[in-house]
Design a protein around this nucleic acid. Structure first.
Lengths: 331, 331
DNA sequence: CTGAAAGCGCTTACAG
DNA sequence: CTGAAAGCGCTTACAG
């Protein structure tokens, strides 16, 4: 691989000048700049990141911390991040993080402190206070997407309003007996997404003078939705379910089918996400454009790194998509 | 952040000795080694990758090139890669690649030549001959997973046998009219996965003295499967469909439902993958354990980098899982 | 506008 | 077993 001095030699200038010509920093004549560029092209020169990283402290890479790679939502967010970062010549270094405390230590204490990345994007991982301290102590930009901590610069959709939108749709259809599948902290002020959605659910019902017809906790998988819905349908059956994700909603649809119930005849179901399969299932849902969310998170981080990016809008959009899984309460 | 000389000073040794103590290379007394380690722990020292990378030429990072982040299969493979790599202290740098030739050039010509990664894993991307040349010219280990090119060290499942297994299951149930949804090159010798599966399909039918009851090409999405199946079901209807992926099979199931057909009463369907939803759909499928495939690819790359890894098995396993989407041809 | 030189933080022959 | 020194390939004040 050709190095910078090969380029300099070929262009007949010093290494310093070659560096300036290629980076665009410092002023030099257009002629020499062009000469250096030509030499670099001819040699197929690409600057070594380890060398320039060591010299400048910048590596043009951002770390992305994800909880689970195989959730549809995260895969799409990641894709969005990747698109936006690539457009600015940044690479992405991927870190998976589960509940394993040792793994978290390794991430915070070692991986992120190796100087491999210039900034980090954290997706929906719940870090405790001490972990947030360590993140902040990294001394680089950290942006969260759907991260619960108020101490992190975080992009989020207004999940209370989002949930209200879903529930108000059901109420408008005439439903009076609406249950919820999701997750919730006991503390109403907990900032995590599932709790916010549960609060929006409660609030919308209260506004309509209704009380929850049931709540079932589930992790955000299809199977979780299936089991939760089976529980809900076993008791005094609600006429509608608001599921906190499309995957939960799919699970609920499978449970309804197993129970011999028709959707929406016997049971209306609303989800959240806009999952690629929601159309096939005829699922009414709140779309939230994860790909765009990823792009926005990437832009926030790029801005913090001093890159030129389009002015970011202030809030993340979502919208109700009505399909065939919701209707007026039947029979 | 503490540097190596801080550690050395605290331990009362030279930087060189500190480096040796921490890396384990070169022999030195247990006593000083312990002293250095203690100093490093107390200071929370972590070696800078840019510095050690520049000095050694190794960065402990591997590039992973993926076509699409939001396919269930790739997400799981990636997760497997991440698991195995993390266990050896390697990071992963993620590169997404589509058909856009400019993007491919940027990857091959720039991103991969920056010295950021020690090796690369390529997932199912079809590179042309010139691109393969560039990959090989990188001068680092490259391993493919499901990559068509015979010039790349590639891990693959035996897709001909895999397809035979699926089709033989249908034949054994008594089906005589079996169609295929997938993709295929005209050239039978094309090494890409879809073509291999189509060949296995043909071969199994030929062995049973049967001829294909239809073939419909589709990209590997649910929607692709839906459209393809709708076409197949519009003509002389087959009694069974072998779909080259579970997502295609899901699409086919939706199409069957739309056509008012019962599965498996009117139509049997087999898929490939072992998608997390296949259980809910009652889909008979060939499981192929993508997570394990990812781990295996990572281990192959680690071995090429001189890391100690378990002896890799020689072929990738798969297995038939019979559910309720297949039965003897009905009515 | 351009060059010589120091420095980024490690590693590794080379001596001893 | 340990240290002094050179070097990895860039960038950037500092001079001119």
């Amino acid at each position: 691989m050709a190095g910078l001095d090969d380029v300099a030699r070929r262009a007949g200038v010093s290494t310093a000048t070659a560096s300036r010509a290629l980076s665009g920093r410092g002023r030099l004549s257009e002629a020499t700049r062009a000469r250096v560029r030509a030499a670099a092209d001819e040699l197929g020169y690409v600057a070594s990141v380890t060398a320039s990283g060591l010299a400048t402290g910048r590596t043009r890479s951002v770390g992305v911390v994800v909880p689970l790679l195989d959730r549809w939502f995260f895969a799409n967010v990641l894709d969005g991040i990747s698109t936006a970062l690539a457009a600015h010549g940044y690479d992405i270094t991927l870190y998976t993080v589960t509940d394993d405390p040792q793994q978290r230590r390794r991430l915070l204490h070692t991986a992120l402190r190796r100087g491999r990345v210039d900034a980090v994007i954290v997706l929906s991982v719940e870090f405790d206070d001490g972990e947030i301290d360590e993140l902040l102590a990294l001394g680089m930009p950290v942006v969260g997407l759907g991260t619960p901590s108020p101490r992190l610069a975080t992009l989020r959709v207004d999940d209370i309003r989002l949930a209200r939108l879903a529930v108000e749709h059901l109420v408008a259809l005439g439903h009076r007996s609406i249950a919820h599948i999701g997750r919730s902290h006991d503390d109403d002020r907990a900032p995590d997404i599932p709790t916010q959605r549960r609060r929006g659910f409660d609030a919308a019902l209260a506004d309509a003078g209704l009380r929850p017809a049931g709540f079932a906790a589930a992790d955000f998988t299809i199977d979780g939705g299936f089991v939760a819905a089976r529980d809900l349908l076993a008791g005094a059956r609600p006429s509608a379910i608001f599921a906190a994700s499309d995957e939960l909603a799919f699970g609920a649809m499978f449970a309804a089918r197993e129970a011999g119930l028709e959707v929406p005849g016997d049971l209306s179901i609303v989800g959240v996400d806009g999952h690629e399969m929601s159309g096939f299932f005829g699922l009414t849902t709140i779309e939230q454009f994860p790909h765009a969310q990823g792009e926005r998170a990437a832009e926030a981080v790029l801005a913090a790194l001093g890159e030129e990016v389009a002015e970011p809008a202030s809030s993340l959009p979502f919208e109700l998509v009505v399909r065939t899984s919701t209707a007026a309460p039947g029979r």
